[in-house]
Design a protein around this nucleic acid. Structure first.
Lengths: 406, 406
DNA sequence: AGTATATGTTCCGCGTTTAGACAAATTCCC
DNA sequence: GGGAATTTGTCTAAACGCGGAACATATACT
């Protein structure tokens, strides 16, 4: 039951019906491929004639292609199978992080076409843009990937996708930096840019198979140096007025808690970020400066988890403590948004088998309803590259999105 | 950019275009009345012929009516003005609270038709249903209000609008109670039921004039015995998987804080509810049982505010303390959802002129971005009856909602 | 070889927008 | 007072796309 905005609506035109049904057909082919025109018509509950016309339109735009004939189930003419046409077109996903920058090439369906490459991030935007352009050119030339439909870039910080600018990325030290236009100009390819937490949520929305209801109402929680979240409501990414929706990392667990990098105190992030977990292990006061001495500089959460698994009680205690705070924060997300599913990404998830009971216990402890306590929690391993997948989705998804209407 | 759910979509039929445009026309008449067919066509950017057809359809369903001829602006034929037809049809809104139950009759546009009546709430559902039915019958017979299109009921608790049941309403002591069906059966009128925080959000969404962008991305925070919130995203009420989205009242300010009625500790509600404010004034430990002795039983927040305005320093301190916690909690809402506007309702708002600087200061203190700190805050006075307006919207809004498509 | 069945195409009907013409109503101007 | 200009509202034909059914094609079973 959506309200029509009387100052910003879209009247249905003669071609709107077709536009809508075309997108539905495209999505059904995407999720059910290989599929015949007849099956498509049955799924859509339209006559075969209509499905045929929709298909021929998609064929003429080479969004799909006709593959080999399928086997007839019983008797009767064999169906011609339809597939999304992701041949000779690719998408580049770029994940810029404080330490390194990652590049991935996929086809339009998000299928990985090469290895993930990476290089050290130069925080000077001009230099970084140049290096990115050089490496992307190289990648596109090397591979048999066809033409590039677009480049998606994700950044750990506040982004204005409409203007293409990074408004504030603390870990990169960027403020009011336009990355999109110079990169697009250097390559002659359209560039989309978005916050990485939101991109992760997009990745799950567009790549999750099976239970779509859960993916269309979900929250992605990404835990690394900071805590970022992306919220998906009714199959749509929640942006908020200034595209900053999803900063759950700075909702407090205790307003009198440790100082957070954002300047406030007791943020969830200051309890569960990788730095917080490591600080807890090394016994530093969390309010102090970040540990960067010789012993701790190269020590990561993965190392900590390895020690915990090897029997280091202090390491285990640090992780368990993070697990508990993680659960308490998730409970806030559940109470406030009641998502069907929560995705969790980040290094800490490699310890999931250790911490799951603690996390779930803490969730149950603070959720208001029994339903809330049983909210699905899905772990997204780093090997799935959720941020890069999200960057790709920025480019690939619009072709499949529902048309704006009413 | 919404994703089409491949397991639950709506194909566009032959009549879908008309359905969409019909609703747009209806909404434009609603917001711009009185309006002529020609102006409607200009607003919609369609031919006058189309607008005429849409109008004649709406006329035949008596959703609108033709009023007197308007004055010609320059030369030319005088336009016939169109109006939403809210004559002889009414909606009943019911607000069930722990102490009293309120009833309001409005027309389809939400215009108040009589006085708000109320009676003491009997927590036995059978008795309450009977009394409600009796009083509503009486109200509908007394007034020259025409036939009743539906009854909207709001309850302070967890509701399943689809099943018509109240799953859990702590202050009423209800659990798994079906209120909708017995009431509908007793009156022969369809009944809609919803949580009161969500209803308040709906009320603002459907009755706010002017800046629609703000209303379509807003959060309503209702502060009384408890703290309830309703979230509106893209012009649609956010329900969540179990219709429990919006329980920001139980997001903690400090997990080690005072015990909350929900069983957890340090919930925002336990800092800013009316009881919390009063307890602070009387110096009780917030974790103790609620103050209900002779002195405090009948003392309300309004009384407290009156004392504060009269110069009672202790009263002012209690209110200021609540104001600060209120702002800190609002900051969490802003950080996590980035709404364009926050509406605040409840008794404490009568002290807004006293507490506004403190609230805004606390908001700025914890919001992550400068944008966030300047988020619009609108006070909704009790005289506007936001809960009752929301109850009415439950019935009146569907006729104006955008059709589900794609 | 004949029949049954499934797929994919084609044709016509009908609802809706699009475009334009036209009558009715009203003001302006001579 | 009368004609021109302008605006409103209706009407008709064309274009677009779904709805339904017929038809050709292709395959399996008997």
């Amino acid at each position: 039951m959506r309200k029509i905005n009387p100052h910003d609506f879209k009247v249905a035109r003669r071609g709107t019906t077709r536009e809508i049904n075309r997108q539905i057909a495209l999505n059904l082919i995407r999720t059910h491929q290989p599929i015949s025109r007849a099956d498509l018509a049955r799924l859509m509950n339209v006559r075969r004639g209509v499905a045929s016309l929709l298909v021929s339109e998609l064929l003429s735009e080479s969004l799909i292609f006709e593959g080999a004939l399928g086997e007839a189930v019983g008797r009767g003419r064999r169906p011609t199978f339809l597939y999304i046409d992701s041949r000779q077109r690719c998408v580049v996903g770029v994940d810029i992080r404080a330490s390194r920058t990652y590049i991935l090439v996929t086809d339009l369906m998000g299928k990985q076409l090469g290895v993930v490459s990476s290089f050290q991030t130069n925080k000077d935007v001009a230099v970084l843009t140049q290096e990115l352009a050089r490496r992307i050119k190289q990648t596109l030339a090397d591979k048999e990937v066809g033409s590039c439909a677009g480049i998606g870039v994700v950044v750990p910080g506040m982004v204005d996708p409409a203007l293409g600018g990074v408004l504030h990325a603390p870990t990169l030290g960027w403020r009011d930096v336009n990355l999109r236009d110079p990169l697009a100009a250097a390559l002659g390819i359209p560039v989309q840019i978005e916050n990485s937490g939101k991109a992760c949520a997009l990745a799950q929305l567009w790549t999750t198979r099976g239970d779509m209801v859960a993916a269309t109402n979900s929250v992605f929680v990404s835990i690394s140096d900071g805590v970022g979240t992306g919220i998906v409501v009714n199959g749509e990414l929640m942006r908020g007025r200034h595209n900053t929706a999803g900063e759950f990392g700075h909702v407090p667990l205790s307003i009198d808690g440790p100082r957070c990098s954002c300047g406030a105190t007791g943020c969830w992030e200051s309890y569960v970020s990788n730095l917080a977990t490591l600080s807890r292990y090394f016994g530093h006061d969390l309010a102090e400066a970040r540990p960067r001495d010789a012993e701790t500089a190269s020590f990561t959460v993965e190392d900590l988890i390895a020690r915990a698994r090897a029997g280091d009680a202090k390491a285990l205690a640090a992780i368990n403590s993070t697990a508990r705070y993680l659960g308490l924060g998730l409970a806030s997300i559940i109470n406030s948004l009641d998502p069907a599913r929560i995705y969790i990404g980040g290094e800490i998830t490699t310890a999931w088998s250790l911490i799951e009971p603690i996390v779930r216990g803490a969730v149950r402890e603070r959720t208001l309803t029994d339903f809330g306590g049983t909210t699905e929690i899905h772990i997204v391993p780093a090997e799935e590259h959720p941020r890069l997948r999200g960057a790709v989705a920025l480019v690939a998804a619009p072709a499949f999105a529902a048309p704006m209407v009413a």
